Each structure stands twice: as C-alpha cells, then as structure tokens.
Simulated scan of single mutants.
Amino acid sequence: MASSNPETESNNGSSIAKEPEKPQIEAFRMPTMEEMRAQEVWNNCAVRSVASGVMGGGLGLMMGMFLGALDNPIMQEEMTGRQQFMYTMRQMGQRSWSSAKAFAVMGLIFSAAECVVEKARAKHDTTNTVVAGCVTGGTISAKGGPKAACAGCAGFAAFSVLIEKFLDRHT
C-alpha cells in the first residue's frame, strides 16, 4: 500500500519514515499589568482568607442541606406527609446554617494561618500546612480546654498533612 504523501516517498517509490518534528519552544511572555495586579491581590492574606471562608461556607451549606435531608423524624408513623416535609426542611435549614458557619470559620482560620506562616518563613512547603492545621484545630477546639486544644491541634495538623500529600501540592 503506497503512501499518497509526497514527502515520505523517495525517488524509487519506497516509503521512508520521516523523523518526527521537534516541538517548537514557546516564547517567554511577560505578564501584563492586569495580571500582575490580580496576582498581588490574591497574594494578600486578608483576601485569600476571606475567599477561603466564603468557599468553606458554601461547602458547609451544601453538606448541611444534604445531611439535613437524610434526617428522619422519630415519630415518622404519626406524622402526615406535610409535617414530615416541614420537619425535613427545618432540619436542612438548621444543619445548613450550622455547617456553613463551621466550615467558613475553619477555612478562614486555616487559610490565614497558612498565609501568614508562608510569608514569615518565605517558603511554600508542608511545614506551613502543619502549623496552619495545628492553629486551626487548636482554635476550633479551644472551648473544650487545653487537652481538647492539644488534641485538636494534633488531629487537624495530621489531617492537613494527609490531605497535602494526597493532593501532592508540595514535593
């Protein structure tokens, strides 16, 4: 079967494989002023923390809605369909608000701690994640006393490292 491509055919009609072309090296492009301003805005710890808090709140809202919908009333047999529906809506609302607050605070504290530690150390590595996890866990569980704060610190730091290794952000 002869090739119809004239570049691969030689004078005697046999086909010779042409060497694959080397990929072109892409020219270096300097960022525009708008790109640099956007990067500077995102590097601000306050902006990063608020954005993480808002995203955490959104995640908590969705999780609360899902978990609230799974709650069944205890007296399900004695309730009408409308009562069951109203109970489920109330549970979804309560769980959504509670989860949204918890996840928003968690995201805000973690992101702020990680950003401040990263700026202070001038490094982007797993140590920042460990410290931020410890600060977040300790802060969230501080109401339970010093033992609870220490356990929260250790637990959240370990969880943060596992997530970091799973996502493979730092090498």
Rank of each mutant, 00 (worst) to 15 (best):
R169M: 14
Q84F: 01
C150M: 13
E9W: 01
V130S: 11
R82D: 08
T171V: 11
I163H: 14
Q94V: 03
F103G: 01
E40V: 04
S15A: 11
L70M: 05
G81E: 13
F159T: 14
Y87P: 03
L108P: 00
M30W: 07
S10T: 06
E78F: 13
A132W: 00
I109D: 00
S141T: 07
A122E: 15
R29S: 14
L61S: 13
K143L: 13
M33I: 09
C115D: 03
A102S: 10
G64F: 01
A151M: 12
G60Y: 00
G138P: 00
G64I: 02
T127S: 13
T171G: 14
G144E: 08
V54H: 05
E34Y: 13
G138S: 08
V105A: 15
F28P: 15
A17M: 10
S49E: 04
K101V: 05
G53S: 06
A148N: 11
P20N: 10
P73H: 05
K143T: 11
L70R: 05
D71R: 08
K119G: 02
G93L: 07
S141E: 06
G144W: 04
M36N: 08
G155N: 09
A17D: 09
K165I: 03
V117T: 11
V50Y: 02
V116L: 15
